[in-house]
Design a binder for these strands. Structure first.
Lengths: 206, 206
DNA sequence: GCGAAAGTTTGCCGGAGCTGAAAGTTCTCC
DNA sequence: GGAGAACTTTCAGCTCCGGCAAACTTTCGC
């Protein structure tokens, strides 16, 4: 018999789940890109992915999440990386380097991420959703950072750094999509973080 | 005859509108503070404010906005102030000083704003809404800032500065509420902006 | 292999958010 | 004080979303 040893570790059930999730997210992105957020219903998305609309809600708590929340880039890994950065690295630089892996995975899934960001740009109601997707991450990140720099958890610095780097990263993502991935996301994030580290000085008009 | 010259400029109708809006927002905040976001319906809010639930939606596009969006602090004024700051002031400092008036108005309405922030803190689903409330402002701000520092509108700096200062301001607001207004919002915002200007260095453990 | 257990999909149903239209009420302005 | 504008209400209807229990599929123990 022809067997698939590669599939041994992860069972058929889980693969199917991933497929369904993927099909739903893809269908949602495609339809919304075509028609706009308001003119696509959950029913249509589900039909395009060949499942019932009830099933849609087994995967995503709401319509928007199918567009914005991406399981493939899970924040847990980012937080693990952040915890692994040697403690002598300053916090801002530590965040930047922990982002590297996430950025790589996003660039590997380039097409989908660019489409996602374009959809978000054209449907501003989704922008807050992008924040929502990161809000839990930011909370945990705040605690991690407090430990790293050795201040009490209610000190202003960790929360500020988490919020600000989140904003900077989103800003870079939008810029990435704005010129259709012409410059690498990694470069754009670097540029943003360098500007942060420099204290946000006015750019020089040469 | 006893007349009310004070009421001459703004008619009864407008005052009633303001009252209704206020009653709705207050009722919403109070009920949600008591029971949590999920356990309060628009119908209950409307009943508490003595209007039909259809009227609720004439004032607020959705439930969350009654809790978060505050007419009394309109962003147009902030943008005007920003445009008025002398051009030789660096952009980051300009934003800080344009925020002053908004901060004053928030501190004047202290009780309500603290309650609002507590409600947001306890119902994290609202946090993205807080971002949504500022998203249009940030867009305009980006254009203003581009003009101010003399770079093309697609330069990364203006968008980054708008996003980052927005995040810093939200962070300060949450902190303000976290210790129940013990320190003035103005101080907390100053602290955040100073940290930004310094390039987010790790705080020194003395 | 095979049958039970565990997990998934689905239809059905109901509550809640939100919108448009039409009718009724209140305010404004002349 | 009356015509008309502005606001509120009632009502009907759509979509979102979650709970439930029945049907189905995959996995596991033997």
């Amino acid at each position: 018999m022809i067997e698939q040893p590669a599939a041994q570790t992860v069972g058929l059930r889980d693969r199917k789940k991933q497929q369904t999730r993927d099909a739903l997210a893809t269908a949602a992105l495609r339809l919304v890109a075509e028609r706009g957020l308001e003119h696509v219903t959950v029913e249509e998305i589900s039909a395009a992915a060949d499942v019932s609309s009830r099933t849609f809600f087994n995967y995503f708590p709401c319509k928007d999440d199918a567009l914005v929340a991406d399981h493939s880039v899970d924040s847990a890994r980012f937080l693990t990386r952040l915890a692994q950065v040697p403690p002598e690295v300053p916090a801002l630089a530590a965040v930047r380097s922990a982002l590297a892996e996430m950025i790589d995975r996003m660039q590997a899934d380039r097409e989908r991420w660019l489409l996602r960001m374009v959809v978000i740009e054209r449907n501003p109601a989704l922008l807050p959703r992008l924040v929502a997707a990161g809000v839990e991450t930011e909370r945990t990140m705040t605690e991690l950072l407090a430990g790293r720099v050795g201040v009490p958890p209610d000190h202003h610095f960790p929360a500020l750094l988490a919020a600000v780097t989140g904003a900077a990263f989103r800003s870079a993502m939008l810029r990435w999509a704005a010129d259709d991935g012409a410059r690498s996301l990694s470069d754009l994030v670097d540029e943003a973080f360098e500007t942060l580290a420099a204290g946000l000085p006015d750019p020089q008009a040469p």
